[in-house]
């Protein structure tokens, strides 16, 4: 199982497509930095099919005023949770 990390918003960047095309059915995806916009209900559709495997970084949501605005299907993790995710995955692949 790999952890993919995306730091761009699907509203403006196609990087999310690259991440998705490299994902296996059990891989996980973490949204950080501007990527957390992808956790909004209006944009989360770009990540359809990742229910249970889609995460967003709490600190980056918080600093952008988006913490209370995430779709219910997204699991919010803090930076310690980010570390957990990298421990649990064999490797981390970053898409930026």
């Amino acid at each position: 199982m790999l952890l993919h990390v995306v730091n761009r918003s699907p509203a403006t960047s196609r990087v999310y497509q690259q991440a998705l095309s490299g994902m296996s059915p059990d891989d996980r995806l973490l949204l950080i930095e501007d990527g957390v916009q992808g956790a909004l209900p209006q944009l989360v559709r770009y990540y359809a099919g990742l229910e249970g495997r889609l995460f967003a970084l709490k600190e980056d949501l918080e600093s952008r005023g988006l913490l209370g605005h995430c779709d219910a299907s997204v699991q919010v993790v803090d930076v310690d949770g980010f570390v957990d995710l990298t421990e649990e995955a064999e490797r981390t692949v970053s898409w930026y």
Partner: peptide
């Protein structure tokens, strides 16, 4: 064991 990349 792990390498984590941070890009722009």
């Amino acid at each position: 064991d792990r390498l984590v990349t941070f890009g722009p």
